[in-house]
Nucleic acid binder design. Structure first.
Lengths: 323, 323
DNA sequence: GATGAGTTATCGTTTCTGGCGATGGCTTTT
DNA sequence: AAAAGCCATCGCCAGAAACGATAACTCATC
């Protein structure tokens, strides 16, 4: 078995046809057909069922396909690992929750970009669920997400400890005042994201229903709407401090067990840790000691993985609670 | 990058020379040299330093080598996965602690061998540390070891809950009677193995020193020596029950926190779960419901992985406590 | 039913990679 | 100084891989 054969196989399986695979691989159909045939005879079992509209995977092919992908990933990773000479450089694509980026990462990114000018740093925002998926699919080298994640193929580093607080219209004395009548309108940054489920659960425990949900793409818009009394929201307290001091909103602390949330940095366990990413994590550690806001006492601490069956996609905790 | 090139690279790295690698790969030295050269130009960095006595890996080569190994493993696994048609067959090599094999596995193996005659089942005894290493190195598909193991690349299924007890010469009323004078001679199955560290720790907590250690390869020899008053040992209570009832030895229970030990079945997380192994685990589950001794209520339960940095070799807990 | 578009299989030809053997340069050992 | 062992390089060649054309087949449409 050869990685070149698997590359052809994977293209055929993905495109669903040998013609399409040939076009993608910059070769001719007869060649693809011959390669697939060679692989099938080598394995002694059919990998595709041939139809008039293309091909479909047999059970054997289904079993082989994930290996073909992993081999391709592994070879790409091997190339990067061998070429990585220890000098941070090249592209580094990292994901982050929007609130974390706004609150914690600006100074870190600025210092890192200054120290490692050869690195093309890119930050992509997203929800915890989206970011975990992107890291697993290797579209991101790592991401700041809401922990704990507990996926067996991810390494998880505690980075920040955030205190969340409820934000409501100015002049309201308490959460109860903001949820009078047992209903509340809540405002979130993105529909699937950012403390929404956490806020809903929190209100549900207090017997408050959430009939309406408003979604705004920017934090400033959320501040404006909360200030205008359109609803309440849940955000890191450090983030809303300035707005609160300006008197635009009222801030309502939560009990610690509901308020505290850990932000972790995740990256693939078995992937090559690029020099760019390593330098980034070193900077994060340095920022921590410099008191720039990283709270965890040891960034190399792993959060305890979940004890359960560790699904390959997302675990329930993140589907439910994540921002 | 190609798996064939990596295969050549790995052979050169392992044998430390292109001539030796050529001999191993059934080809000529010039070819090996050309393949390595091609890989180096493709990667843009040297992989070996050439010396008069052979070659040595450069840092780039060091980084590439583990990937070469993993690609080779992955391709082998891919072949097995594609060929595995769901009918259990072929070789199945499993490791087990000797006491577990003696106490729990005979009926399971017998039933499995009868149900799956196409499988060449092989059982290899060893200590927990040895067996974990063998599974990680793919010399074993799985193993029964003393849990918890908590290695990120191993899946761990609770199988049995054993109660250990101390075995001493007949007529002794208590452990204290067997350890009079604060010293005890202990008898173990194998030097690195089987509850030895556990027994020593247990005695140390009672202020008993262990000046002498005797090692015997078979359980029957141990029973004989204990019966003759040469020393004490620690074994699963169910295993020593018949000997005790025959009056050959005295049996001394331990408090639950010292007595209970979990036997788990481990196998590689990312490896293909062969039909033979799957059928074996199904049989184990069936044995459980049939009350043949499997205690865990759910064999699919994962034991909690360790929270720490997850070393690639063995974790400390297993070096210290394992049988 | 004929036709055309789409698919894969197969064949002969061409290209070129990978393997071979010989040689040479180098270092270490004898 | 000779021998042994190592790797680099060259020319050569076989065989695999790629190519192009064609055949066979299915399906949708006319």
């Amino acid at each position: 078995m050869d990685s070149a054969e698997l590359r052809v196989f994977e293209a055929v399986a993905r495109t669903g046809g040998m013609n399409r695979a040939a076009a993608e691989l910059h070769t001719v159909q007869s060649n693809v057909s011959a390669r697939v045939r060679a692989l099938e005879t080598e394995l002694g079992c059919a990998l595709f069922e041939r139809h008039s509209r293309g091909v479909a995977l047999t059970p054997s092919g289904e079993r082989l396909l994930p290996y073909a992908r992993r081999v391709a990933w592994l070879l790409a990773d091997a190339t990067r690992a061998a070429r990585d000479d220890g000098q941070p450089g090249g592209p580094l694509t990292i994901g982050s929750l929007e609130t974390t980026a706004a609150l914690r990462l600006s100074p870190l990114f600025a210092r890192y970009a200054a120290a490692c000018p050869e690195v093309d740093l890119a930050i992509r925002p997203g929800t915890t669920a989206e970011l975990i998926e992107a890291v697993l699919e290797r579209r991101l080298e790592g991401a700041f997400v809401c922990g704990p994640v507990a996926h067996p193929s991810l390494i998880e580093l505690k980075m920040f400890e955030e205190e969340l607080a409820i934000l409501a219209a100015p002049g309201l004395a308490s959460i109860e005042a903001a949820t009078r009548g047992g209903i509340a309108r809540i405002i979130v940054l993105r529909a699937g994201c950012s403390y929404r489920q956490r806020l809903e659960a929190l209100l549900a425990r207090r017997g408050v229903a959430v009939p309406r949900l408003m979604e705004f793409g920017t934090l400033e818009a959320i501040f404006g709407c909360v200030s205008a009394g359109l609803g309440i929201t849940l955000l890191p307290r450090a983030l809303i401090g300035p707005v609160w001091r300006a008197g635009r909103v009222s801030l309502h602390p939560l009990p610690p067990e509901e308020a505290m949330v850990t932000t972790v940095f995740i990256h693939r366990r078995e992937a090559h840790l690029s020099s760019a990413l390593r330098a980034f994590l070193d900077h994060a550690r340095a920022s921590e000691t410099a008191g720039e806001g990283i709270v965890s006492s040891d960034t190399s601490d792993l959060v305890k993985p979940l004890p359960d069956g560790a699904p390959l996609a997302l675990n329930e905790a993140n589907r439910r609670n994540g921002p």
